[in-house]
Simulated assay, not measured.
Amino acid sequence: MADNPDDSLEETRAALAPTLDATAAILPLLVRPKPPRFDPGLNERWQAACKRLSSAWSERHTGDMDAIRSAIFSLLAIALESKDTNVLRLSEALASACDRLEDPTPPLRTIAALSACIECLGDYGGLEHDAFMERASHFAGRLEASAVAAVYTRSAILDRLFVSEARDKIERLHDALSALPPDAYALKTETEDLIQQAEHLELWGIVQMGHQLLRLVTEHNDLDNDQTRAATLDLLHALDTAIDAVDV
Rank of each mutant, 00 (worst) to 15 (best):
Leu235Asp: 01
Ala56Asp: 02
Glu119Phe: 14
Pro182Gln: 08
Ala48Leu: 13
Arg69Lys: 13
Glu219Ser: 02
Tyr124Arg: 15
Asp183Glu: 06
Asp6Gln: 04
His237Arg: 13
Leu53Tyr: 09
Ile170Gly: 06
Ile243Asp: 00
Thr191Leu: 01
Leu20Gln: 13
Phe162Asp: 00
Leu29Gln: 14
Arg154Phe: 05
Ala238Leu: 10
Ser91Trp: 11
Leu75Thr: 06
Ala77Asn: 12
Arg167His: 03
Glu44Thr: 11
Asn4Phe: 10
Ala145Met: 11
Ser146Asn: 02
Ile68Glu: 14
Ile170Met: 01
Ala140Trp: 00
Arg32Tyr: 08
Ala245Gly: 06
Ile157Pro: 01
Leu114Gln: 01
Ile170Pro: 08
Ala179Gln: 05
Arg154Met: 05
Thr191Met: 00
His220Met: 15
Gly125Lys: 03
Leu90Val: 07
Asp224Phe: 04
Gly122Thr: 09
Ala145Leu: 12
Ala95Glu: 04
Glu92Ile: 15
His211Asn: 13
Ser91Ala: 04
Asp7Thr: 13
Leu143Val: 00
Lys51Ile: 08
Arg167Trp: 01
Arg13Leu: 10
Leu239Gly: 02
Ser155Leu: 01
Trp46Asp: 05
Leu203His: 05
His129Cys: 14
Ser74Lys: 10
Ile206Val: 03
Leu53Gln: 11
Ser115Tyr: 02
Arg13Gly: 06
Asn43Ala: 01
Ala17Tyr: 10
Arg45Asp: 09
Ala93Gly: 03
Gly210Trp: 02
Ala77Trp: 15
Ala242His: 09
Glu199Trp: 04
Leu16Pro: 07
Glu92Tyr: 10
Val246Ile: 07
Ile78Gly: 03
Phe73His: 15
His200Leu: 05
Ile157Thr: 02
Leu94Met: 04
Leu239Arg: 00
Arg160Asn: 07
Asp168Cys: 10
Tyr124Lys: 15
Asp6Ser: 04
Lys34Ala: 11
Met65Gly: 01
Arg37Thr: 06
Val163Ser: 00
Leu29His: 05
Ile68Tyr: 14
Asp226Gln: 10
Glu134His: 12
Ser82Gln: 03
Glu190Lys: 01
Arg37Val: 09
Arg100Ser: 10
Leu233Ala: 14
Arg142Tyr: 09
Gln47Phe: 09
Ala71Thr: 05
Leu216Glu: 12
Leu27Ser: 04
Arg45Gln: 06
Ala242Val: 12
Pro181Leu: 02
Ala2Ile: 12
Leu214Val: 08
Thr23Met: 15
Ala156Leu: 06
Glu219Leu: 08
Leu213Met: 07
Arg13Phe: 04
Glu199Leu: 09
Asp66Leu: 15
Cys50Phe: 10
Ala179Trp: 05
Glu144Arg: 10
Ile72Phe: 04
Asp183His: 04
Ala112Arg: 12
Leu194Gln: 01
Glu102Gly: 14
Ile111Thr: 03
Gln47Asp: 08
Glu171Ser: 11
Ala156Cys: 09
Leu53Asn: 06
Asn86Phe: 05
Leu90Gly: 00
Leu121Trp: 08
Ser146His: 02
Thr23Trp: 11
Arg109Tyr: 05
Arg229Val: 03
Ile195Pro: 03
Met1Gly: 07
Ile170Gln: 03
Leu223Phe: 08
Ser178Thr: 07
Trp57Gln: 07
Thr85Leu: 10
Asp244Lys: 08
Ala156His: 05
Trp57Phe: 04
Glu219Asn: 08
Met1Cys: 11
